[in-house]
């Protein structure tokens, strides 16, 4: 996996305790078209608190353009932003 740190548009659901569960997201390609990726499986999650900044980290697995890939997405609590961190 390589660090890409790209902002993404996310559809997610939240539990009653406020824990996010990502469902699918889309990224803007260079030609400004969208690629939608459905999250097939969340392998593991953890929270990180680096420099006091809380983020949920999800390691997921999806089929992207016919290839099964593992990637990492992050949700930053202070800004409510999702990023595709590593793929």
């Amino acid at each position: 996996m390589k660090v890409v740190a790209k902002p993404i548009e996310m559809a997610a659901w939240f539990t009653r305790d406020g824990i996010p569960h990502p469902i699918k997201f889309r990224i803007v390609n260079e030609d400004e078209s969208y690629t939608v990726i459905k999250i097939d499986k969340i392998i593991c999650t953890h929270t990180e608190k680096l420099a006091g900044n809380c983020m949920y980290v999800f390691r997921c697995q999806s089929v992207v353009e016919g290839i099964e890939r593992i990637f990492e997405i992050k949700y930053e609590i202070s800004t409510c932003r999702w990023i595709l961190f590593k793929i």
């Binding site: 660090v3 890409v4 740190a5 990180e48 680096l50 420099a51 900044n53 983020m55 990023i83 961190f85």
Partner: peptide
């Protein structure tokens, strides 16, 4: 350190 850790968390290499 704090700036650096923040940048790394946001994908800076």
């Amino acid at each position: 350190s704090w700036t650096s850790v923040y940048n790394l968390q946001h994908g800076d290499t």
